[in-house]
Design a protein around this nucleic acid. Structure first.
Length: 169
DNA sequence: TAGCTGATTGACT
DNA sequence: GTCAATCAGCTAA
C-alpha cells in the first residue's frame, strides 16, 4: 500500500507491479550508472524514497531496501487506486473511472503528486508512506523480465499481481 | 561546450 | 507498429 499526502489531499493505492534493482552487479541499476547523489541513497538505510526524472519529463518512484551499505531498491511501476481517486483523476486529466490513472511509473507519480522533492524522504513516516494493507489479500504473483531498460534484460526481476487490470503494458 | 542517453508516455500510422 | 517531447548528467574534445 502506497499513501501520499500532498497539498491537503490524501491519495493511496495498492502496489500491483514492481521491479527490483540490485547493486553495481546489476548493469541496469542506478546504483551502477547514476550520479553519486543517487548512489549514496542506494547505499543508505532502507525505507527511503528514491525519485528520479526520466526522459526529461517523467518521474519514477523507488523504495530503497536493505540495511545501510547494502545497495538495492524496488521500483514502483503500478498501483491500483484505493483512496483519493478523484484527486488522482484531476491530476491526470482523466475520468475517475479510468483504469489508466496509475498503471505506469510516470503515471503513478503524477497521480500521487510525487516529485523530486520526495527524493530521500522517509517512507515510514509520510507524507509519502508505504504500509502493509489493513486486510492483506492473498494474490498470485507473476514474474518476468524488466520493462523499458536496455541493460541486463535477461534478469527476471519484475513482479506483478496476476490478473490485476492495473499493471502496465 | 557539444553530443548522447534514458527504469516513459501519448499521439499517430 | 513508429516517433517526438524534453533535460540532467555523463562522456569526449
Amino acid at each position: 500500500m502506497l499513501l501520499s499526502r500532498a497539498r491537503g489531499s490524501v491519495t493511496a493505492g495498492r502496489i500491483v507491479e514492481t521491479e527490483a534493482y540490485l547493486g553495481p552487479e546489476d548493469a541496469a541499476s542506478h546504483a551502477a550508472i547514476r550520479p553519486l547523489a543517487a548512489r549514496a541513497l542506494f547505499y543508505g538505510e532502507g525505507g527511503h524514497a528514491y525519485v528520479f526524472r526520466i526522459y526529461g519529463m517523467h518521474f519514477c518512484l523507488n523504495a530503497i531496501t536493505g540495511a545501510a551499505g547494502e545497495p538495492g531498491c524496488v521500483l514502483i511501476r503500478a498501483l491500483e487506486p484505493v483512496a483519493g481517486v478523484g484527486t488522482m483523476a484531476r491530476r491526470r486529466g482523466l475520468p475517475p473511472s479510468s483504469r489508466f490513472l496509475t498503471n505506469g511509473p510516470g503515471k503513478l507519480t503524477q497521480a500521487l503528486a510525487i516529485t523530486l522533492h520526495h527524493n530521500g524522504a522517509d517512507l515510514t513516516r509520510g507524507p509519502l508512506l508505504i504500509a502493509a494493507p489493513d486486510a492483506p489479500r492473498k494474490v498470485a504473483i507473476a514474474s518476468g523480465p524488466r520493462i523499458g531498460i536496455t541493460r541486463a534484460t535477461s534478469l527476471r526481476l519484475r513482479f506483478w499481481v496476476r490478473n490485476s487490470s492495473y499493471v502496465s503494458r
